[in-house]
Measured scan of single mutants.
Amino acid sequence: DNLVIALHSYEPSHDGDLGFEKGEQLRILEQSGEWWKAQSLTTGQEGFIPFNFVAKA
């Protein structure tokens, strides 16, 4: 599955970004460039995340 774990917390800075906490698990929905579309397994919310803040779970 496309699961990743957050290496750092991220505060959203643009509409459509997904904020998350360090250690949170996310499911990657789309990989494109440096911003990936993801869904939080904690909150169920979707949005874009910086790819370098996460690692394969």
Rank of each mutant, 00 (worst) to 15 (best):
Q45A: 11
S13L: 15
T43K: 02
E30F: 10
L29D: 04
G23L: 03
E46D: 06
L18T: 01
F51W: 14
P50T: 07
E21N: 11
Q45M: 12
H14T: 09
E21Y: 11
V4T: 04
G47L: 04
S32K: 13
D17C: 14
E24Y: 01
L7H: 06
D1K: 08
D1R: 07
L41C: 11
L29T: 06
E24W: 03
G47R: 01
F20R: 01
H14M: 09
W36I: 10
N52H: 12
E21I: 13
G33H: 05
K22S: 06
L26H: 01
E21F: 11
F20W: 02
S9I: 04
L18H: 02
R27V: 11
H8F: 15
L41M: 12
K22M: 08
F51A: 15
E24N: 02
K22L: 07
Q39E: 09
L3P: 02
Y10Q: 03
L3W: 08
F48M: 12
L3I: 14
F51Y: 13
A38P: 01
P12A: 12
I5L: 07
I5Y: 11
S9H: 08
A55Y: 12
S40L: 05
H8G: 05
P50F: 07
E11C: 14
P50L: 06
E11Y: 15
K22I: 09
A55K: 09
W36N: 01
E21M: 12
E11G: 07
N2Q: 10
R27G: 01
D15Q: 12
V54L: 05
Y10C: 06
D1T: 09
S9W: 06
W35V: 09
E24H: 03
Q45D: 10
G23M: 03
H14Q: 12
D17N: 09
D15S: 12
R27H: 07
F53S: 10
E11P: 07
S32W: 11
K37H: 09
E21W: 07
P12E: 04
E34P: 13
E11A: 14
F53P: 02
I28D: 03
S40E: 01
E46K: 10
K22E: 10
L3E: 04
G23Q: 01
G19W: 06
P12L: 03
H14I: 08
K37A: 05
Q25Y: 15
G33R: 03
L29E: 02
K22A: 10
E34N: 13
